Measured scan of single mutants.
Amino acid sequence: DVEPGKFYKGVVTRIEKYGASINLNEQVRGLLRPRDMISLRLENLNVGDEIIVQAIDVRPEKREIDFKYIP
Rank of each mutant, 00 (worst) to 15 (best):
D1N: 14
D1S: 14
D1P: 11
V2L: 09
V2Q: 03
V2A: 03
V2P: 05
V2W: 07
V2F: 10
V2G: 04
V2I: 15
E3R: 13
E3L: 13
E3W: 09
E3P: 15
E3D: 06
E3S: 10
E3A: 10
P4V: 15
P4R: 13
P4M: 13
P4K: 14
G5R: 04
G5E: 03
G5C: 13
G5D: 04
G5Y: 07
K6H: 09
K6C: 14
K6S: 07
F7H: 04
F7C: 13
F7N: 04
F7V: 05
F7G: 01
F7A: 04
Y8Q: 00
Y8D: 00
K9L: 12
K9H: 09
K9G: 02
G10Y: 05
G10D: 00
G10M: 07
G10F: 09
G10C: 11
V11K: 09
V11T: 11
V11F: 09
V12Q: 00
V12W: 04
V12H: 00
V12C: 05
V12D: 00
V12L: 02
V12S: 00
T13Q: 05
T13F: 06
T13N: 04
R14K: 13
R14C: 07
R14W: 09
R14H: 11
R14E: 06
R14I: 06
R14V: 08
R14N: 08
R14Y: 07
I15S: 01
I15F: 03
E16A: 13
E16K: 10
E16D: 15
E16S: 15
E16P: 01
E16Y: 15
E16T: 15
K17N: 11
K17T: 12
K17W: 15
K17F: 12
K17Q: 11
K17V: 13
Y18G: 09
Y18N: 11
Y18P: 02
G19F: 11
G19D: 04
G19V: 05
G19Y: 12
G19E: 03
G19T: 06
A20V: 14
A20Q: 01
A20I: 13
S21Y: 15
S21P: 01
S21E: 15
S21W: 15
S21H: 15
I22A: 01
I22D: 01
I22S: 02
I22W: 06
I22P: 01
I22T: 01
N23F: 13
N23G: 08
N23E: 15
N23A: 15
L24A: 01
L24Q: 01
L24S: 01
N25M: 07
N25V: 07
N25H: 07
E26F: 12
Q27W: 15
Q27N: 14
Q27Y: 14
Q27H: 15
V28A: 05
V28W: 15
V28H: 08
R29H: 13
R29T: 14
R29K: 12
R29M: 14
R29E: 11
R29I: 13
R29L: 09
R29Q: 14
R29F: 12
G30N: 02
G30R: 02
G30F: 09
G30M: 06
L31Q: 05
L31T: 09
L31A: 02
L31H: 04
L32V: 03
L32Y: 02
L32T: 01
L32C: 08
L32S: 01
L32K: 02
L32Q: 02
L32I: 05
R33A: 05
R33C: 06
R33Q: 05
P34W: 12
P34T: 09
P34Q: 13
P34N: 06
P34E: 11
P34I: 12
P34V: 11
R35S: 11
R35T: 09
R35F: 07
D36K: 03
D36I: 06
D36L: 05
D36C: 11
M37H: 03
M37T: 04
M37C: 09
M37Y: 03
M37D: 05
I38L: 09
I38H: 12
I38V: 13
I38N: 10
S39R: 13
S39A: 12
S39W: 14
S39F: 14
S39P: 15
S39V: 09
L40T: 07
L40M: 09
L40I: 11
L40P: 02
L40C: 12
L40K: 06
L40N: 04
L40Q: 05
L40D: 02
R41N: 10
R41D: 08
R41L: 13
L42M: 08
L42C: 07
L42S: 03
L42R: 02
L42V: 06
L42H: 02
L42I: 11
L42W: 07
L42F: 07
E43V: 08
E43I: 08
E43M: 08
E43T: 08
N44L: 10
N44S: 12
N44A: 11
L45S: 00
L45R: 00
L45C: 04
L45Y: 02
L45V: 06
L45M: 06
L45A: 01
N46I: 10
N46F: 10
N46T: 14
V47W: 03
V47K: 02
V47N: 02
V47G: 00
V47E: 06
V47Q: 02
V47C: 05
V47H: 01
G48D: 04
G48Y: 03
G48C: 05
G48H: 02
G48S: 02
G48P: 01
D49I: 06
D49Q: 11
D49H: 03
D49K: 02
D49C: 07
E50R: 11
E50N: 08
E50G: 06
E50A: 10
E50L: 13
E50I: 15
I51L: 09
I51A: 00
I52G: 01
I52S: 04
I52V: 12
I52K: 03
I52Y: 11
I52D: 02
I52P: 00
V53L: 07
V53Q: 00
V53T: 00
V53M: 04
V53I: 08
Q54I: 12
Q54M: 15
A55W: 05
A55Y: 07
A55T: 05
A55I: 14
I56S: 06
I56H: 05
I56D: 02
I56M: 12
I56P: 01
I56E: 02
D57C: 13
D57F: 14
D57Y: 13
D57Q: 14
V58L: 06
V58I: 11
V58A: 05
R59Y: 07
R59I: 05
R59P: 04
P60V: 12
P60I: 10
P60R: 09
P60N: 10
P60C: 09
E61C: 08
E61R: 07
K62N: 10
K62Y: 09
K62M: 13
R63G: 15
R63K: 14
R63H: 13
R63L: 12
R63Q: 14
R63D: 12
R63E: 11
R63P: 08
E64C: 11
E64S: 08
E64K: 07
E64Q: 12
E64D: 06
E64V: 09
E64G: 08
E64Y: 12
I65Y: 09
I65D: 02
I65L: 07
I65M: 05
I65Q: 03
D66A: 11
D66V: 12
D66S: 14
D66G: 09
D66F: 15
D66H: 12
F67P: 03
F67T: 02
F67G: 01
K68P: 03
K68L: 09
K68V: 07
K68A: 15
K68H: 05
Y69T: 03
Y69K: 02
Y69I: 04
Y69A: 03
Y69V: 04
Y69W: 08
I70H: 08
I70W: 13
I70G: 06
P71Q: 07
P71I: 07
P71N: 07
